[in-house]
Each structure stands twice: as C-alpha cells, then as structure tokens.
Computed example of a mutant assay.
Amino acid sequence: MGRPIINEAYWLRAISCLAVAVTHCVNTTLGNYEESIPQLEEYFLIVIRFIAFFGTPTFIFISELLLAHSYPNKLPQDFFIKRVKFLLIPFIFIGLVFAILVSNSLKDILYEWLINLFLGGYHGYFILIIFQFYILHAALHKYMVKWPAKKVLLIAFFINAIYLSIFNFTEPIAGKVGEYFWLRGYWVPFLGWLFYFVLGFYCGRHFKLLKAHIEQQKYMMYILPFLFISVICILTRSHILDVVSSKRVDMLFYTVSVIFFIILVTMNRVKVPKFIYIISKYSFNIYLLHKILLYFLKPIGYLNPVIYFIFSFIYSVLGAVIIAKALGYFSFSKFLIGKTIPIPKEDGVQKS
C-alpha cells in the first residue's frame, strides 16, 4: 500500500508472543510441581506470570495497529478470504487437536471441539476475538476516522473496564453455563478487548504522532509499567482482585504502559535484530503449537522448578519453531498451523 513499515511492530509481536509462552510455561510448571514447589519459587513464578499477562491483549493492539496503518482507506477485497484460510482454518484444526488430546471417546472429542470453537475452550480463542474486530473495523472504519479520537478512546475504555469489572467483582450466575461464562466464556466477546482495538486503530493511523508523544513523556513511560505491575501484585496479595488472567480490569493500564514502553525503547533502533525477526515470523505458529508441546512435558523431579520453567520455555518455543519450519516444506501446512509472517529483506529502510 506504499505505507512505511512499523519496525516497532516486530518487537511488539515477538515480545508478546514470548510473553504468552511464558504464562503457559508458568502454568505447566506450577501444575507439575503443585505438591512440592517451595513457596519462594512459587511466588517468583506467579509474579513472572503476572508480568507476562500483557501478551494476549497486546496482540489485539498490534493487529489493529497494522490494519489501520496498512489500509488507511479500505480493506482489500480478498481480506476476509485470506484470513479465513490462514487464521480461522488453523484455529479449527488446532482446536480439534486439543479436543483429541483431552478426550477418551468420539463423543467427548466432538463435545470438546465444539467448546473450543465457540466458547473459547483453548488458548486459540484469540482468533475468535480477532475476527470480531476485523468485522468491527470493516463496519466502523469510515466513522472512526471522523469521530474525535479522545472521546472514542474514553468511551471504549469505560465500556471495556465496566465489562471486565462485572466478571472480576461479581459472583457467577447459578448453573453450569453461568459458572463457565464467569470462568472463561467472557473472554471471547469483543467487549473485553475493545479499548485495545480502538487504541490500536488510532495509533496505527497516527503512529509518528504517537512516537512523538511517547518521546515527550519518556520518563513517565519508563516508570508506569513497574508502577502498574506493583499495583496488580498488591491488589492480588490483598485479595481485592485475585483473578489470575490477562482479563483483569487493572490489566488495561498495565498492558498499555508495556506497549508504550516497548515502543519507546525500540523506536530509535535502526535495525531489528535477527532473533526478533525470527520470533515475529513464527509468532502465530508458536502461539498455536507451544501449548501442545507443553501438554506432553512431564515433571523432571531433580530439576528446580525455576530451572524447569526456563527449560519448558526454551523447549516449547524452540520446538514450535522447528515444527513450523519442518512443516513449512509442505504447502498444506499453512492451513494447519497458519502462515509465517513476512519480514523485510533489509533493516531500517522503510521504518516509519
């Protein structure tokens, strides 16, 4: 489209991808060492998990940031067709894989598969959210470019915050449906992520202006992530808000602060390191595959839990990249585990 590449997006995507893997590796470690983990190591891993919870919401932001930046006027005609083929079909396939892994009969497989596809039963629920925002972008783009950004951002923030607060601070409606929806079903509707979408839209359209504002407030940008994660830890320890997920209302503040922090520390780098390009390239594959690898990872009794966590992280991320690279030789693999993301041939040339 002739628009300059946002190099910072490679950093955001790679770091967010690794953050998602970190949260699941912590969960695996805590689950495998549930009976024997020392308290100090347990607290350390729990804090690491909270620090990494920005990963999934940042993906929402990145998706809309790049959409608004790359297509400032309208979406291409084949936009939805491509995303159905390379996002939705892999989501359906990996949902089936997880259903098979946790089931003992054909009936159970079908039940779990339907839960995965429509109720966010596995970590790929992110794709369902993204598609809702693709539809919202197509429907609201021509209006959002005219509406005052500050007002839209404020309204979106309050809608998002109120929605999350309902599920953070109230008891589930009686019954299995209510319990499931309060547990994880509320993750899927777009209202729980609306602010990240709106923020991504306006940041994508005005990225140079965003960077100028971040530069002006750089000292605050260095402080805010540490301030907000401290608040999250205090609220959790005091049991004021003890939800353990990225769907906490206070994550709205923390995630945005981390996004701006990453942009700040990367926006003056001329070159993107090869490692960041590689993780960014395989980020969707890592997102889909790493938890399958973790499913087969058993406890290793003689390893300290923190060392086990580090091992599980390297094993799941590296394993996912190796699988994606190996399957990449087959043209059909993009329909199973998604496409890799293109990276520029030269660094820094098209930086916005």
Rank of each mutant, 00 (worst) to 15 (best):
331 S>K: 15
96 L>F: 12
20 V>L: 12
104 N>A: 00
240 I>N: 00
225 P>H: 06
115 I>T: 12
335 F>W: 09
219 Y>S: 13
230 S>K: 01
277 Y>P: 01
45 L>R: 01
238 S>D: 11
213 H>G: 11
44 F>L: 09
21 A>K: 06
41 E>V: 04
310 I>A: 12
206 H>S: 13
164 L>Y: 07
348 G>D: 05
209 L>I: 09
174 A>M: 05
14 A>S: 13
125 Y>W: 06
20 V>A: 07
117 L>H: 05
1 M>R: 04
102 V>T: 14
292 I>G: 00
108 D>P: 09
190 F>A: 11
301 G>I: 13
159 I>C: 04
85 K>F: 14
220 M>L: 15
168 N>G: 02
76 P>A: 08
72 P>E: 03
201 F>G: 00
9 A>D: 03
226 F>A: 10
291 K>C: 13
12 L>S: 03
212 A>K: 14
336 L>D: 04
80 F>D: 02
245 S>R: 08
173 I>C: 01
175 G>I: 08
297 L>P: 00
126 F>I: 01
324 A>N: 10
14 A>G: 06
174 A>Y: 12
291 K>H: 14
132 Q>D: 08
224 L>I: 10
250 D>R: 07
322 I>R: 06
78 D>Y: 13
336 L>E: 07
35 E>A: 15
70 S>H: 08
306 V>P: 03
142 K>A: 09
191 L>S: 05
342 P>L: 02
213 H>T: 02
206 H>K: 13
13 R>A: 08
324 A>P: 04
209 L>W: 12
257 S>L: 10
331 S>T: 14
218 K>G: 04
